[in-house]
Simulated assay, not measured.
Amino acid sequence: MCFRAIHSSQRKQSRERRQACEEYTYEGRTCCKCGAGLKLKEHCSTPRTESECDLCEDNTFSSVPNSLTTCEPCRPCSQLANLEAATNCTRTSDTVCKCKDHHYCISDTDPCTECRPCTVCDPGVGVKVKCSPTNNTICNEPQEILHIAYLIVLDQCISVFLCINSFLSPHFISTVNENLKRYIPDIAPEIGWTDMRNIAMGSNIPIGIIESLELDYRQDSQERTIRLLGVWAEAEGREASRKLIQRLRKSSKKGKAERVMEILSVGNSDSSHPPAEVVNID
């Protein structure tokens, strides 16, 4: 009884394979192809019977019925091309490769054959479009950065007098103490960008203004120092000269504080300008 059941099952499987047979012709005989994941070992001996097949070896595959004596090699995901396996190769399907993290595809083929590292935008520039497996990063254009800086400053105005239009305008120091206003171009080189930046940040000048100046005058530290000193001085108003000297002294920049005082003293001695109201710094 058991033998009959096994024999019946084998006949059923054989009938199902014949019904699913994809044919090919060999020496006048019509044979059934090997299924996916298999390769041909021996052609059929009688028409419309199955050929003898073997499993594909490791690292090879066949994805469709075939009469080939070898399976196709699995595709390697080249590290030199910045690829890695998304799906490993099996006997019935090839490897599916993808770009490594933080890389994007540069080939016009599908699947991708080469990836490159995503562009990293400069500090303060910002990302317009994030990097993805199909496209590189797109950074903000200088005009867009300036627009963003405008929005930051307009949102964080220190007072009704401190807005982005004023620090980019030729008359950006219109409300500062008259004596300091006149000598900003002389004072700024004495302070230097690093110390001026620290003073501004310690006075809650929006970081957006500072980064925008760094971008606009990246090759001219003196000009960006002049600009930032003007922004800071306008924010401080009549107390600007006194606070500037105080902050320099507190940061152990007494030499610079003395040189600033000397410059302001020249202004005090100029009869064509009223004396500054900031001589007393104690």
Rank of each mutant, 00 (worst) to 15 (best):
N177M: 13
I191N: 00
A200Y: 00
V231N: 10
G192I: 03
W232K: 00
D155A: 14
V176L: 02
L146H: 08
K254P: 00
S169C: 12
L213T: 05
C131E: 03
S159L: 01
P189L: 00
I138L: 15
D195A: 13
I209D: 04
A149Q: 03
A200S: 07
S203C: 13
S203G: 08
I148S: 13
E211Y: 12
A149S: 10
Q143W: 11
T137G: 02
S166T: 14
L154M: 13
I207H: 01
R182H: 10
F167H: 08
E214L: 03
A240N: 01
I148P: 09
E239P: 03
L151Y: 07
S169L: 05
P170D: 05
Q156M: 07
H171S: 13
P185R: 00
T175I: 12
N198D: 11
R242Y: 01
H147S: 14
D220M: 01
C157V: 08
I152G: 06
I245V: 10
K243L: 14
S241P: 15
T225G: 03
T175G: 10
L146P: 04
E239V: 10
V127L: 04
V153M: 11
E214M: 04
E141W: 11
H147Q: 15
T194R: 07
I138G: 04
S221Y: 02
N136A: 06
Y183E: 02
N198L: 11
C157P: 10
E178V: 12
R249L: 05
I152R: 04
C163R: 08
S252I: 03
G126D: 02
I152L: 06
S241C: 15
I245A: 03
S265N: 15
Y150C: 09
P189T: 01
G208T: 01
N179A: 15
S241R: 04
V266I: 07
K128H: 09
R242C: 14
D195K: 05
A233H: 05
S174G: 06
N268Q: 05
K256C: 05
R247G: 03
D216G: 09
I209S: 07
S166E: 13
T194G: 06
A149T: 11
Q222K: 08
T134R: 07
I164Y: 07
R182V: 11
S251P: 05
S203Q: 12
S159Y: 02
T225M: 01
T194N: 09
S159H: 02
Q222Y: 06
N268A: 07
E211A: 12
G267P: 02
T134S: 13
Y150M: 12
V231P: 00
E262G: 13
S203Y: 10
N135F: 08
K254E: 11
E144I: 06
H171G: 12
E236C: 09
S169P: 06
G230I: 01
T175A: 15
C157W: 03
S166M: 10
M196H: 00
A240Q: 01
V125W: 02
E223T: 12
G208C: 04
K128D: 10
P142S: 06
S251F: 08
Q143K: 14
L228F: 07
A235I: 00
